[in-house]
Structures are given as C-alpha cells and as structure tokens.
Write a protein that binds this DNA or RNA. Sequence first.
DNA 1: CTAACGTATCAGTGGATAATGATATGACAG
DNA 2: CTGTCATATCATTATCCACTGATACGTTAG
Lengths: 116, 116
Amino acid sequence: MTAQNIQDDLSAPDTLELRAKLFRGLSDPSRLMILDALVSDERNVQEIVGHTGLGQPNVSNHLRCLLECGLVSRRSKGRFVRYRLADRRVADLIRDADQLLASTANGVDACQSYTD
Amino acid sequence: MTAQNIQDDLSAPDTLELRAKLFRGLSDPSRLMILDALVSDERNVQEIVGHTGLGQPNVSNHLRCLLECGLVSRRSKGRFVRYRLADRRVADLIRDADQLLASTANGVDACQSYTD
DNA sequence: CTAACGTATCAGTGGATAATGATATGACAG
DNA sequence: CTGTCATATCATTATCCACTGATACGTTAG
C-alpha cells in the first residue's frame, strides 16, 4: 500500500491494522514513559533506563517496538545508541490525547475494562 | 523519580495509565472498525454488527470498553441503544494518526513486534 | 400475557505480550 | 589481546485480552 492510497482508503483492513499498531505502540505505560523521556532530548538506552526505572532488556525491547512502529529513530554513537522521537507529530499526538483526557478523564478513570 | 522532576505533571503514573488506556481503546482493529462506523452517524448495535461483520456479543463488549474509556457515548431509544463518538476530537485523533502513518507507513508496516 | 427482538453479560478458550534473568554481540580503553 | 561497558536477544512465566456460544434482561408488538 502506498502513501497516497492511505489517504483515500482509511477504512481498509490493512489501514485499520496499521492504525491499530500505531496506537498499540502508544498503549503501554512503560512505552509512554520512554517516549516522555525522549520528548525533550535524544537519549541512549542507559539514560532511559535511569530516567524510567525500567529494566534494561525491557527498555531495549520496548525501543525495538517503538522503532519498528516508526515512533522513534536511532543512531549509533560509538558504544552508545541514541534514540529520539521519529517525528514531531508523535509528541503532538500524545498532547492531543492529553487534551482529550482533560475533558473525559472521569470516564476514562472509571474504565474497568483493563485492570491496570 | 520524584513528582517535581516531571515536567507539566504529564508523566505522573496516573496520567501515564490514563493515556495508556485511551490509546489502548484505539489499539484494536475491531474497535477502530466500530469507531469508523460511528464517524458519520449515530448507530445502534445491530447496525454496527451489520457494518463491521463482527459478532453481536463481541460488538457489545467493545462498545462497553469504548464507552468506559470515554471514546463513545450512548443513549437508549426504546429497545435500541444508539452510540456515537463522544467527542469530535476522537475522530481528529484518528485522522492525525493516519497523517503520521502516511509519513512513516513503511516503518510501521515492517513492524514485527505484533504478529497481526 | 406472550412471543419476538435488541442488547448485555457470562464462562471458556486460545493466542498475544510484558517483564525478568541469563546470555550473546559489539565497541572501546588500557 | 583482554576486560569492561552498552545494547540486543533468548527463553520462561504469568497475565491479559479478543472471540465465541449460551443465556439473561428489558422492551415492544400483537
């Protein structure tokens, strides 16, 4: 599927699954923590581990997910690998979600479907 | 990690979990299909079942999730229950995600973390 | 009242996945 | 080289969740 087809074909099954994958990348508190750590700065894995308190293999695994889903990008720098948000719109999307939550937070808070 | 280190308080654990729940509501192809069915019109459950091809209990279950997460609202109309998007920004969020996908679709398409 | 319809809930099942500890890979310092 | 550090991968486990069929609940029609 090409980029221009996506605009015209928003409900096609493939597009639904792409959308689902993108949102799933954003649907985990650990990954949101990692993304928060990357909003302000480019950081390497150790810095993210320190910033989030998550285990190193866990962080690497989440970063792989975020990378493959196009939410972050990486570049090697000697022994270190530095990660940053892939696009400004990733932060925008999270901010928009927060604004929506500010209106409907009571409802979301009462959500019992996921036992977080 | 202390609370005052967190910029704008957006990274507090509670906020992270609220965000995660909101995005998780959007992270399933079936739910995205249901939301697509509701973008243009208010619909009852049977109409959604016909529009999506999903099973009726399955649709009801997803609708409960979407309702509790504040993404849709409902009103009873006789025997029928009519659902609609809770906020225009729900559709906006999905559209913004599609625009982001249009730029990074190759990366997301290659995502192997979730074997859909 | 009673049957048919619309919707919601329940129990069971299979598959997905987040977290962890151990380990592998690769790069730099000395 | 060799040891150490940074990162990635693997195997395991425990949990979560989407789907299905059966069923319960409530409402309207006749």
